[in-house]
């Protein structure tokens, strides 16, 4: 009879990723590069919002974009046309990026001379919330057609984000989207979350979003 004993481990399975993420954040801070992790469901307007953002601040700030998708390079081509430096990352079926993949992506992109790097995460409200990428700040987009109940359904995503962009507000009349209820639900999970209604297509609200972003970049480099 073998003599079994209990070994107390208490090791976090995410410890590796968390440690890598902290290391990456420190490196980015030293290099004065602001990394924004942008998350949302597929089709909520991440790429269009990004195009509009680059168009608005592209002359003041040097911007890089990492497009993470399971496959294809359609988003990278679209962003490439804005003049921003862009790299397409393929996750090979993975539903999210972790700190190591982010770090490899940054190395591939080359961050020298960049003020802002946007990581367009895989379109998904579940898994990307679970893995710290090492980003300076987390942002998410929720579009009006998706519904105002999403904070109730995907609480972790709303908990970890610093800013919530509510996109496609031009379509508000066609959907039963209650902006006030959505904001209340998001704040119940995360009292400090900034909620900014925008329309990436028409440019409405983009000034407020860009002001937030510039302020955060300033604080990052302070």
């Amino acid at each position: 009879m073998n003599d079994f004993r209990i070994l107390t481990i208490k090791a976090s399975v995410f410890a590796d990723n968390d440690a890598r993420a902290d290391e990456l954040r420190k490196q980015l801070k030293d290099d004065k590069v602001f990394l924004l992790n942008l998350m949302s469901s597929p089709g909520s307007g991440k790429t269009t919002t990004l195009e509009r953002t680059i168009e608005t601040i592209g002359e003041e700030l040097s911007i890089g974009v990492m497009e993470a998708d399971i496959d294809s390079d359609v988003d990278a081509r679209t962003i490439g046309e804005t003049g921003a430096k862009v790299i397409q990352l393929h996750t090979g079926g993975m539903c999210h990026l972790d700190a190591q993949m982010t770090s490899q992506g940054l190395a591939g992109l080359g961050t020298e001379g960049l003020d802002l790097v946007v990581l367009e995460n895989v379109g998904n409200l579940v898994c990307p919330a679970e893995f710290d990428t090492g980003a300076s700040k987390n942002a998410m987009i929720l579009s009006v057609p998706e519904g105002d109940d999403k904070p109730l359904k995907y609480p972790l995503m709303f908990t970890i984000c610093d800013v919530l962009l509510i996109n496609k507000i031009d379509a508000m009349d066609f959907f039963d989207f209650d902006l006030e209820a959505c904001t209340r639900r998001a704040r119940a999970l995360n009292p400090d979350i900034q909620v900014i209604p925008i329309c990436a297509k028409t440019g409405e609200g983009i000034d407020r979003w860009v002001t937030w972003l510039k302020e955060e970049i300033k604080n990052w480099n302070a």
Partner: peptide
């Protein structure tokens, strides 16, 4: 709240 830990293993 988001813990995912290996608490212990029983082994020999």
């Amino acid at each position: 709240g988001r813990e995912f830990l290996i608490k212990e293993i029983i082994a020999c």
